[in-house]
Amino acid sequence: MKKSATIGILSLAAAFASSHASADELSLVCSAEQSWCDLMASGFEAKTGIDVAMVRKSTGETLAQVRAEAGNPKIDVWWGGTGDPHLVAAEEGLTQASGADTAQLLDWAVNMHTISGGKTVGIYAGALGIAYNSEILAEKGAQPPACWKDLMNPAYAGEIQVANPNSSGTAYTELATFVQLFGEDEAFRLLKEIGKNVNSYTKSGSAPSKAAARGETGISIGFMHDMVKLASKGFPLKIVAPCEGTGYEVGAVSIIEGAKNLDAAKQWVEYALDADVQSLAQTVKSFQVPSNSNAKVAPESPDLNSIKLIDYDFATYGSSETRGRLLSRWDAEVKP
C-alpha cells in the first residue's frame, strides 16, 4: 500500500518541476521550412540578445493550438506559413495588432495588414503554378502544359496530382484562383474536367509536387517556390506559370493575443520585416518573394513581375462563409 502510494506520489511529484517563461525570452511558432526557421531564430538572438524558444508546426496545427490555448497562450508570435489561417486567427480575435511599420512593404503585404486591422502582416509571397516531371512526360510522349486549361488534355489521364482543398490551404488557394479567373460556374466545370485526369487528391498541399519530383505522378499543382526547391535538389521537375494568370499566397507574421512577452514579439515582427533579414532567406534555399521592397530576390525565385498575377481577393475568399460554400460545392461536383 505504502509503496504503491510512493510511486503515485513520485510520479505526481514530477509535476511540480514545471518551469515558466522568464524575462527576455520569446516563444515562437514557425510555420516555414525548418532551416529558414533556424536561421531566423539564431539571427534574432544574435541581434537582440533575446532568447528564442522556437518550435516548427504547420499552419493548421498552429491555428488549432492557438484556438485551444486562447485566454492563456503559451505562444508569443507566429511567424510564416500561408496567410489564410493568420487571417482566420485575426478574425477570431486570437491575434493582436503589432503596430508594425509597413512603409517599405509591397502592396500585397500591406493589404494583409489592412484587411486584418493590423493584426497580421505579409512577409513573403509565393505564386501558384504547375510542375511536371520532364522524364515522365517524355516517356509518355505528352507535350508539357502551359495553361490551366491544358490540364484537361486527355493525354494527361491519371498523371495529375493535386491536394484536396478540404484539408489543404494550397488546394483551397487553387480553387479560389480558378473561381476568380474563370467565374464560379466555369471554374467548377474546368475543375471537374481536370478531375478526370487526377489520380489522387492528396491530404497535404506539398505532397503532389514531391510526388511529381520522384515521378510518382507526371504533373502537380502547388506553390512554385516549393517546386523550385525540389528542382534545385536535382529532381527533373520543370515549373510552369500558367498563361491565364495565377493566384498566390502571402506568408504572414502575427502576435498572439495575450502574449506574455509582448515587447519581444513586437521586436520580432520588426525584425521579420527588415530588408536585410528577408534577403537571407535564399541562403537556406527558401525561394519565396520577400515582402520588403528593398530586400534582395533570389535569382531562382519565380519572378512575380513576369507572372500574370491575378488581383487575389483575400478578404472575400478568406472569409469562412465563401470558404464553406466553395468547399461544399467542390465536394458535390468535383470530389471523386
Partner: peptide, 13 residues
C-alpha cells in the same frame, strides 16, 4: 483517423 485530423487542422476547422 485522417478525417479526424483534418477536421481539426484542415482548411475548415
Amino acid at each position: 483517423s485522417t478525417d479526424i485530423f483534418f477536421a481539426i487542422v484542415g482548411s475548415v476547422a
